[in-house]
């Protein structure tokens, strides 16, 4: 009995899809397009975040010491920083060492440094962070803490660049969410209209079903199955296209920008998000269907 009913519902749904195949193709195409756009934004944001964190991990901080800091104070400052939980190790770079390093980096052009009356470079402490704290949030709290130390005049860690990159990711997220919301609305409307067309083409059947005593639930099930099938097909298609495009694009990016990206590993959508996207597609299909079914059965 149960299996026969199930068979009946699926048969009715597939029959309807067969009869209204053009409408269904348009709907599946719309779901695919919407989910593909979502997918592109999600993959982009995930990888940008990873690049951001990866660069964050390579960062080390330079804390510049005040001009008149004496050896005792330097020792105390160094110890204080070394005792912070974030710190892996601290290296002292004296004024002289800093100048020597600069000269070395300017090899061949070091003549420009010859006429200096005095060494203008400050002494500094180069700080390396523990792995667990190599992320932008920890970095910010750590920097704030170091800046509170009197003997430290300034801290440098490429903050300007990190902030710009962080802002860029926020913009990408915002654009993604805006376009996503718009597409979501458009998709639901298109699905709802597609189901409305299907309902219209089957209105005589529905009228007779109601006449002979079919419950609204029984009438609705095949339509919800249609929505389910559309959502499933749309999301699987979107994921397929996304995966193939990702593979092609990543191989190109890696070959063209390997110099900048180093050994960075790009990732596709994590399994959880793949499942979420499929569920989301199915929900879209069912919700679009519910929208027109509700209106129709009330009428």
């Amino acid at each position: 009995m149960f299996f026969y009913r199930l068979f009946y519902f699926f048969r009715e749904a597939f029959q309807s899809i067969k009869i209204n195949r053009f409408t269904h193709l348009v709907t599946i195409g719309t779901i695919t397009f919407a989910l593909l756009t979502f997918g592109i934004f999600i993959v982009t944001v995930i990888n940008l975040n990873r690049i951001f964190d990866d660069w964050g991990k390579r960062i080390h901080l330079i804390a510049y010491l005040g001009k008149n800091t004496d050896a005792e104070e330097i020792k105390k400052t160094r110890e204080r920083i070394a005792n912070l939980p974030h710190t892996k190790n601290v290296t002292y770079v004296s004024k002289e060492r800093a100048l020597a390093l600069l000269k070395e980096s300017l090899k061949g052009q070091d003549g420009i440094l010859e006429n200096l009356d005095e060494n203008p470079l400050p002494a500094s402490l180069e700080i390396q962070l523990k792995e667990a704290y190599k992320n932008t949030q920890s970095l910010k709290t750590f920097v704030a803490e170091i800046k509170r130390i009197d003997t430290i005049s300034d801290v440098e860690y490429g903050q300007e660049w990190l902030e710009k990159f962080s802002a860029f990711i926020s913009i990408v997220k915002l654009v993604g969410v805006s376009i996503g919301a718009f597409l979501l609305l458009a998709t639901i409307l298109i699905i709802s209209n597609a189901i409305k067309l299907t309902i219209y083409s089957r209105r005589e059947e529905i009228e007779i079903m109601k006449l002979v005593g079919a419950t609204n639930f029984f009438i609705q099930i095949p339509f919800f199955l249609e929505g389910f099938i559309q959502g499933l097909c749309g999301s699987l298609l979107a994921l397929g296209i996304l995966y193939v495009s990702y593979k092609i694009l990543i191989s190109k990016i890696i070959s063209d920008y390997s110099l900048y990206l180093g050994a960075f590993n790009f990732i596709f959508l994590p399994q959880k998000l793949v499942i979420a996207l499929i569920f989301f597609g199915i929900l879209l299909g069912i919700f679009g269907c519910a929208l027109s079914m509700g209106r129709f059965l009330k009428a």
Partner: peptide
Amino acid sequence: FKLLNSRTVYENVVFTLEAIGTNR
């Protein structure tokens, strides 16, 4: 009459029973 012209005589009658969930 209100018949489904795309379905056969048998299907038109069976349609009622299927619609109310009668077993096969």
